[in-house]
């Protein structure tokens, strides 16, 4: 019988939907091992997040609320996660492979003397026991890994698991006594420069429209109307970010965000392996590129060979007409 501990992702007190994909992973694992899962909410002033996750089938929701946890610094967060995991006897600790999950989970693993698998997309049964399947080499290969330590740490690729639906049950909320060290921290939060956007979150959107270097400084004027009409999140290739046409957290790919929306548009993106690593599991892929030989057309369900500066505005106005 296993016990899985899910660490909730939230943005300063607002639950991130990604958490529900991680809960789906935990549910699968618990099912395969006749176990159960708990959810932990860590931060300061986050009782609302704990309340928000009580109807997804967790045996318990643990609330770790402390002023020194207000900002997700890896050291203090790792300590309380590991202490809580030990206290409840968790044998798997997981969180989404968000920037916080990537930052914190390895430190948790050290504290629990656990091995860690990153970016897990599937749980597979092998002759040597349960393995975690994960993409390697920019998604060109899939590796099934076995973690031999008694406690295991997993970061979950949320795009690979369907979010759990709201259930009827109500998990009890337990205030945890886990707390960060009182000793003077050697790292301090200075500032956060957020990308203001009223659009859906890139990692959660059902439609994503991404632009590449080919758009140059007309990136926004081409991509925004398309995102508006489709209710989409905007993404970008690394080259578009490097050249300053789009903010860094728009980057989709091996080293950016991994998305798997219902519909993905790649506009003026060549389709380098590192970009494909972040979007090739989308349900429907559309590529708009003026060069018919680009690798993006090998993964696109629908390819349009055209100048994006002409085709995208035309697409937007035709969809508008349909919707009018």
């Amino acid at each position: 019988m296993s016990k899985v501990l899910v660490i909730a992702d939230h943005d300063h007190g607002v639950l991130k939907k990604l958490t529900l994909n991680t809960v789906a992973f935990a549910g699968h694992y618990a099912e395969k091992t006749a176990g159960s899962f708990d959810i932990a909410v860590i931060g300061h002033g986050v009782a609302g997040v704990a309340q928000a996750v009580t109807s997804y089938g967790a045996a318990a929701v643990h609330l770790v609320d402390h002023p020194d946890l207000a900002h997700p610094l890896a050291g203090p967060w790792a300590k309380v996660i590991a202490d809580l995991a030990t206290a409840i006897g968790a044998d798997v600790v997981c969180m989404s492979a968000s920037s916080i999950g990537k930052d914190v989970l390895p430190r948790v693993a050290v504290r629990l003397q656990a091995g860690m698998a990153s970016d897990v997309v599937e749980i597979v049964t092998t002759s040597e026991g349960l393995a975690f399947r994960r993409p390697m080499w920019a998604g060109n290969l899939m590796g099934d890994v076995i973690i031999s330590s008694p406690t295991k740490v997993v970061s979950v690729r949320s795009a690979a698991f369907d979010a759990v639906a709201l259930g009827a049950g109500s998990s009890p909320i337990v205030a945890s006594s886990a707390h960060p060290d009182a000793a003077g921290a050697r790292v301090h939060f200075v500032s956060f420069d957020g990308t203001a956007s009223s659009r859906p979150d890139l990692a959660e959107a059902s439609v994503v429209v991404s632009g590449g270097r080919g758009l140059k400084d007309r990136f926004n004027s081409v991509m925004e109307p398309l995102a508006d009409i489709l209710g989409a999140a905007i993404g970008a290739s690394r080259a578009a970010v490097d050249d300053g046409y789009a903010p860094n957290d728009y980057q989709v790919g091996q080293t950016g965000k991994v998305v798997a929306p219902q519909l993905y548009f790649a506009v003026a993106i060549s389709g380098a392996v590192q970009h494909l690593a972040g979007m090739k599991n989308s349900k429907v892929i559309v590529a708009i590129n003026k060069n018919a030989d680009e690798p993006i057309f090998k993964v696109a369900d629908y390819g349009l060979v055209a100048d994006a500066f002409v085709a995208v505005p035309e697409l937007v106005s035709k969809i508008k007409l349909l919707r009018a």
């Binding site: 790292v187 200075v190 420069d193 860094n248």
Partner: peptide, 11 residues
């Protein structure tokens, strides 16, 4: 470089 923007830390 983190989700949602840029964070600055002093260490």
């Amino acid at each position: 470089e983190v989700d949602g923007g840029l964070e600055t830390l002093a260490l």
